[in-house]
Design a protein around this nucleic acid. Structure first.
Lengths: 113, 113
DNA sequence: AATACAATTAGCCAACTCGCTAAATGCTGC
DNA sequence: GCAGCATTTAGCGAGTTGGCTAATTGTATT
């Protein structure tokens, strides 16, 4: 592996990592429906606004979402809709695979999915 | 958000997190070319075998890869090829977005990609 | 200008991640 | 059975993550 290749994987991992958290997945899912203010998202998620704000800036830093300040509020938008395709594949992983996952929560998952 | 929905996002995040590391991305990429033994992967990556082994079991635990023991060796296979689509989308994120990413490494990225 | 609300930043702490080395397990060939 | 290789497991330590509260910044309203 060359240094360049290694750097490339690192950058990609950084982007994927931005999606690797339940709250941030929820945010992406919600923003797929339209733009939302930080307050709106905070009210839906069960954590404090500063925490939500940090999740949002994480998504923004890698370019997945976009923000626009209007008045006192900041609205966030999904910038790269293709990340929604991740969900489909992840569901496929849930169905087809997952030894540990199957032991834990996937069975209950397949009930609600 | 119901408890079930929350659990669902948690499970999905767990799967995505398994991909959110440079070494594991490399492994997935390499396994897309065919099965590989732990030794083979270790020789390509610059870390010790125990570390590679743990990355592999992380991928196996969420069902992304599969292992088969033949003799003294263990061969790993990609089980859910759709994860390769992640790469395409991640490249789109790299191109279209990424404030921080743009500052850091994306420019050099777009040269090698 | 004073108050109130929206959002971010800073600082703290518990939990997790990922590298390593050492030890354990399992198979192969002598 | 013993030696040697392949792999995994265990245990350690540095660094990161994600929650919180408190403090800061910026806008709107009175």
């Amino acid at each position: 592996m060359t240094a360049n290749t290694r750097a490339q994987y690192k950058t990609q991992a950084h982007i994927i990592k931005a999606l690797a958290h339940p709250t941030r997945l929820f945010i992406v899912d919600e923003l797929a429906r339209g733009e939302r203010s930080v307050r709106e998202l905070t009210d839906m998620i069960g954590v404090e606004m500063p925490t939500v704000s940090r999740h949002l800036s994480q998504l923004r830093n890698v370019g997945i979402v976009d923000d626009e300040k209007r008045g006192a509020q900041v609205f966030y938008r999904l910038r790269v809709p293709c990340v929604l395709n991740f969900f489909k594949c992840v569901e496929a992983v849930q169905r087809d695979g997952g030894k540990e996952a199957r032991q834990n929560t996937v069975l209950e998952m397949s009930c609600v999915a």
